Computed example of a mutant assay.
Amino acid sequence: MNPAAAIRQKAIDEIRETDQNFSSMSEKQGMAKAFTYYAANDVIRMNEGAAPTVGFDSLRAQLSRMPANGPILTWQVLKADAAQSGEFGYTFGQWLLTGKDETGKRKEQHGVYVTVWKRQHNGQWRFVLDGGNTTPEPK
């Protein structure tokens, strides 16, 4: 493998692993903690049916209004790719939001997402853009 291809592949592997760790943190510690941990300072989060959330402080404020025992969001990476430079990349996948309705019955929502990742000065990957939408249950 040539050096440029190796740099790109290493970035793809790191982005995929980071996104999987992000989902695991969301499942175990909640969406608010996971999204604020993995967000870059200049983050933009697309919100279904509403204006986007722009900037880390706005994201933190939005997520702080979520109930601690709210729904659980998890996802699975279906595709990851990166720029040849190894500085930017994206993940695409399917998400599952699990909660309870007013009667206490289990309720699920399904969707797809895309997350754009940027390598920070310290070498860590943080997302700069995240968005998705609901879909019918996958078959």
Rank of each mutant, 00 (worst) to 15 (best):
R8L: 02
A80F: 01
V112P: 00
M1A: 15
T18F: 07
L129E: 11
T18W: 03
T74D: 02
W125E: 08
R60C: 04
G132N: 03
S24A: 15
S85M: 03
D19E: 14
A32S: 14
W125N: 12
V43C: 14
R65S: 13
P71W: 10
K107A: 15
K33S: 11
R60V: 10
K10N: 10
N2P: 09
A83Q: 07
L96G: 05
L97E: 10
S23M: 08
G93R: 07
A68S: 10
P71A: 15
Q62V: 08
D57V: 10
L129Q: 12
D42P: 02
A61D: 14
L96T: 15
L97S: 13
K105P: 00
P138A: 09
F127D: 02
S64Y: 01
F35N: 10
L96H: 12
G49M: 03
T74W: 00
A4I: 11
Q84T: 12
R126A: 11
N133R: 10
P3T: 12
G123Q: 07
M25W: 01
G89S: 07
Q109K: 13
L96F: 04
A5E: 12
G49E: 01
E108N: 15
Q124F: 05
E102K: 14
A50W: 00
V43M: 14
N2R: 06
A5R: 06
R106V: 13
W117V: 10
I15F: 04
A5V: 02
G104R: 06
L97M: 15
E137Q: 14
V116S: 04
P3E: 13
G55H: 05
F127T: 03
A50L: 08
W75P: 01
G99P: 04
Y37R: 13
D101A: 12
F92T: 10
G111D: 05
D57S: 15
G30R: 05
T103Y: 09
L59A: 12
T134L: 08
E27F: 01
A5I: 00
A82K: 04
A4E: 13
M25R: 12
V114A: 13
I12G: 09
E17W: 06
S24R: 12
L73A: 08
V128Y: 01
P71Q: 11
R60A: 15
E87P: 00
P136D: 13
Q94L: 05
Q94W: 00
N2E: 07
T98L: 08
F92C: 08
N122V: 06
V77C: 07
S26K: 02
